[in-house]
Each structure stands twice: as C-alpha cells, then as structure tokens.
C-alpha cells in the first residue's frame, strides 16, 4: 500500500490548522456499568487479592525474590537491611585503604601526589626518611603519619588516580560507618592499612620491585649515576 504524498501547503490554502483526516478516536462510553463504579471496584479487588495471595505465599514459604538477583521479577524485592545487604557495584568508591608491600609495610612513598590532587583537602601526610643503611633510603620516603578525614572526603577518587605507586585504593566495597563523633571519622595510617580490599587481600595486583631486587630498575639506574 502506498500512501498519498502529503500536499505541500500552497499559498492559496487558507490559514489555520489543517483539516484532520481519518476516523476520530471514539470517546469512552459512559455506560451504566461505568457510572455505577461496580465492575471497576471488582476488577481492582481482584487485582489486590491476586497480589495478596501470591506475595503472602512467597513470603511465608521462603520463595520470594532474591532482592538482587531476581529484582526484575514481580513480587517482594525488599532488602531486610542490615541482615541483608545489596553488594556495591565493582567500581564503587568506598572507604580508602593503604595497600601493603610483601613485608607488610605500606606501599606509599609519601610523594604527596594524593593530598595535592585532593579537592577536599582531606589527606594529611607527614613524610619521613628511612633509617641509615636501609636499601630504600635516598630512593624513597615513607609516611610517618597518613590521615584521611572521611567526613570531609567527597569520594571523587582523584587520590587513587594520582597515586603513582598504587598505594591508595578505594576498592573496599564499604561505606563509612555512621559514627557518633567527628573524631571517629579521622582514619589514621594503622586503620587505613587494616582494611582489606574486596577480594580480602591487603596487597594490590600490580607487582612491586623493592630496591635491592635484581629486577628493580631504579636501583641499577642509581648505580650507573
């Protein structure tokens, strides 16, 4: 079937809205059944009862939806927090953690990149030198204090982006706990290092070559200088 092309509006056509072509949409009839309101009431009651029976049965027999895995199905999708928790998505930026080296010390080299990048200025780092004789002395420093004010943090993730050593991460999958005083939101280095990542490990996947290792590029560079 081909449709007749619409005629372009000629200059001689009268102004105003075009004539509507086609059958008009019928208005709903106001029959006695509609006006008496009774069939609609019964229909509504039927729908209510259906939901009542099915949902109550699923609740009583433990068949209700898994609120996360089967969330697109009809039925009760309520999570009973805090007994049940919705896991956060993979790239959720939660509470910070400081990753460990193999020997358990922080990976952080106190370069201050994160505290510089932080728009909320909530990171405070006091760098310190390694003692005399340590292989790392002269090559890198370590944080004597590493403090994050979690109540001030805006969870933008810039610190993680800025870190050249993969030392600070927000992959804990935790939101900050609701404390009752401001002091409790000040996370010190020990606390930050005691929080594992979501996979349970304290380290990161990226390999690290310690000064003194044969694979460490920086040490050879130092020797040649």
């Amino acid at each position: 079937m081909t449709r007749a092309p619409q005629e372009p509006r000629s200059s001689s056509a009268p102004l105003g809205p075009r004539k509507v072509v086609g059958a008009p949409v019928r208005r709903p009839e106001r029959t006695a059944a509609v006006q008496s309101y009774v069939p609609t009431i019964l229909e509504g009651l039927g729908l209510t009862m259906k939901h009542f029976f099915v949902n109550t049965k699923e609740l009583a027999l433990g068949q209700r939806n898994d609120p996360v895995l089967e969330a697109i199905d009809d039925g009760i999708n309520t999570l009973s927090y805090p007994e049940q928790k919705r896991p956060y998505p993979e790239r959720y930026r939660g509470v910070h953690r400081l990753t460990h080296r193999v020997d358990g010390s922080p990976r952080c080299v106190a370069c201050l990149c994160c505290s510089t990048a932080c728009p909320a200025q909530c990171i405070h780092i006091e760098p310190a030198e390694y003692p005399e004789g340590d292989a790392r002395r002269g090559y890198e420093r370590f944080p004597a204090r590493f403090v994050i004010d979690e109540i001030r943090c805006v969870f933008c993730g810039f610190c993680v982006e800025a870190c050249p050593c993969d030392a600070i991460r927000m992959d804990t999958g935790m939101h900050p706990a609701p404390y009752d005083s401001r002091e409790q939101f000040i996370y010190e280095k020990d606390l930050l290092m005691s929080i594992p990542g979501r996979d349970g490990s304290f380290e990161s996947d990226n390999p690290r070559h310690e000064p003194g290792d044969p694979t460490h590029p920086g040490v050879t560079r130092l020797k040649h200088h």
Partner: peptide, 16 residues
C-alpha cells in the same frame, strides 16, 4: 553488583 551477590550465593540465603 548482581554478579557479586551471585558469587556469594545470593542475598536470599542471608538471614531473612
């Protein structure tokens, strides 16, 4: 998030 929940056996198995 759903994959995380599935890897832990779903949220339904938690106390409910």
């Amino acid at each position: 998030a759903a994959r995380y929940a599935a890897s832990r056996g779903g949220t339904r198995s938690a106390t409910m």
